[in-house]
Design a protein around this nucleic acid. Structure first.
Lengths: 349, 349
DNA sequence: TCGATTTATGAAAAGGTTTACATCGAGAAC
DNA sequence: GTTCTCGATGTAAACCTTTTCATAAATCGA
């Protein structure tokens, strides 16, 4: 009797495919087949096994599964940070597609540090992820080397890779910046300023800035006349940057911000300086965060298809080897969303 | 020669502990030891092995490791959504502590659906996570059963569990609501309204509402006089809710919102109705999102220690069995952050 | 110097699954 | 009726670690 009890305890300890097979009177191979490709098992036996699985509450051991099949159903997501809601939107897009397929998302942050990115990638590879989503095209050689040597599927988002061998689902940051410059030029603004993100080792921030400057020039605005300040994507930094710009250049009539977060801060910076938006100064953001619409004034901004990027990336990782090419490059568009923070330039001294 | 080449290809295919051992002239056990408890291996041999590991770029196979040691270094995070930045803050807190310990975060969303939560939990257990972070105290029995049967460490956040056997790191939502009611009473407001989150199967939303109503009553405001509207946490819903409230009750002088997201919307709803905040109507939010400070007017709100909850949860999951109790319950405080969206009640007809 | 204790290393099993290959039976083709 | 195919199932190896136990060497106390 004591023995029986112990046996029962033993069973409880871990419920494996062996126990299921025993109860169903079949081999463990068949149980495995039912779990993975049910159509290959005769309907009767299949039903019996499924019922037992359900009754006993059997949950397969993912580690064993991953070890043997070398597929973990884990997708790594590496972003600079989630502080700014823009990456969150991509994450939600990814997860929404991954979850129904039984895949999960492993999240890691780099804090905009490319060296840290290397370590993060290594860690994710160690965890056995089937794929990794990266942000931007600028990465350390070692990062790519790791990815390639370990044959981990990966893709780049929030930008389009020039390298054809690197799958990317994103948009052209330069065009986005150009959109803003073009619109400001249309409104007759001639004295421009930019609060860019930190452009060092950040292709998105530098792309937006470069695109803005190039288009401004094309529209007849002297590039060197444009005041550029870089700052990290934080409300307070945007505010401070606006202050710096306005202190030094009272005649600036429009500011383009590399992100909506910066723009929110800059809006306050203008207020601090006693300037009204858009009457005295126009403001354009980038990202089109949900909040942009609910600011006062509503923020004119460049919309970024963040959620779609996530969904498309999911498609890519879920695709089987053959149809990989179909999903390996997705070019999306930015569009200008005009709200109340921009107005025609007033003649000012 | 052809054979040699093939052998080399074979090696490339997957670099394991065996190869490291071969090159170091030791057993695989020793390699494993160097990787896991380096201090148990003689310094010389250890160095040699480490160098080889580095040279060859060996990365341990996490699945095999997890299978054998039954620890995956994966922590699951299950939240309703990341749309609202409040959960993002916790996520960042969690990740910031987990990453240095070599652990990673697996993210899953439930969309406020407790049945979906069951499936998500099962999926995470299957992935072999070492622990699971849950939001709130309200869960299906089956969810807890799964967690217990599979002996997965778990904790509840954003609330305090009444059940002592359930670890929680959170705060009392009722007190938070009470804080708001108390302050509005202090300001002399008598005609109150609440835009609560959807309270069904949501202990946080209902706790905040209940705490608010109870405190209002204590402060001499008739509970039944308070207008309550429930809506999902979306800007547009907050706006619509405010409209409903103001249409039906022009004499309402203060609105408490169950989240800052609702408050942002409600702020707009007031503007739509031609009311000025705080001169005509006061507004209090909940969460103290970063944006709250940057709204116009700055939003008075109840601060939630989201990041700290994440950090504390990480501590709990990182703790070893013995010191588990120390971390298993962390009671945090909410505090009222007063900004410009609240003002003393004016006498109005 | 000798036995006792500790330290460093190795051999081999175990962890739970997937999958290549073998087997068996039944129906199809001739 | 015999051979072939095909579908359903079983057997056993393989995936790559960690870890227990054993062994050998080194240290220590007396």
């Amino acid at each position: 009797m004591a023995l029986e009890k112990m046996a029962r305890v033993d069973q409880r300890q871990s419920l494996t495919v062996v126990e299921i097979a025993k109860r169903a009177g079949c081999s463990i191979a068949t149980v495995s087949r039912v779990l993975n490709r049910p159509e290959t098992v005769a309907i009767g036996l299949r039903g019996r096994i499924l019922r037992i699985v359900d009754e006993l509450g059997y949950v397969p051991n993912g580690s064993a599964r991953a070890l043997r099949s070398s597929r973990s159903r884990l997708i790594g997501l590496i972003v600079p940070t989630l502080d700014s809601a823009i990456f969150t939107r991509m994450l939600e897009g990814l997860e929404s597609r991954l979850a129904p397929a039984g895949a999960s998302l492993v999240y890691s942050a780099t804090g905009y540090d490319l060296d840290r990115e290397i370590r993060v990638v290594r860690n994710l590879i160690e965890k056995g992820v089937d794929g990794i989503v990266l942000v931007g095209t600028c990465h350390r050689k070692e990062t790519l080397k790791l990815l390639r040597e370990h044959k981990v599927r990966f893709a780049v988002t929030y930008a389009l890779s020039e390298d054809d061998s690197i799958p990317s689902m994103g948009f052209d940051n330069r065009s986005g910046g150009a959109l803003a410059a073009n619109y400001l030029a249309d409104l007759g603004h001639k004295n421009l300023a930019v609060i860019a993100g930190v452009t060092r080792e950040n292709d998105r921030a530098s792309g937006r800035l470069e695109g803005f400057l190039a288009m401004a020039e094309r529209r007849g605005i002297d590039r060197s006349s444009i005041v550029v300040v870089e700052s990290p994507y934080e409300f307070s930094r945007g505010r401070a940057a606006a202050k710096i710009i306005l202190d030094q250049n009272r005649h600036v009539s429009a500011i383009f911000c590399g992100s909506d977060v910066l723009a929110v801060g800059a809006l306050h910076g203008c207020k601090d300086a006693g300037l009204r938006v858009p009457q005295d100064i126009s403001m354009i953001g980038f990202d089109n965060l949900d909040i942009a619409e609910y600011l006062t004034p509503g923020l004119t901004t460049v919309d970024v298809p963040a959620r779609v990027m996530g969904e498309q990336a999911a498609n890519y990782f879920l695709a089987d080897r053959n149809s990989l090419d179909i999903y390996s490059r997705v070019e999306l568009e930015t569009r200008l969303i005009v709200r109340e923070s921009t107005a025609p330039a007033r003649d000012r001294q």
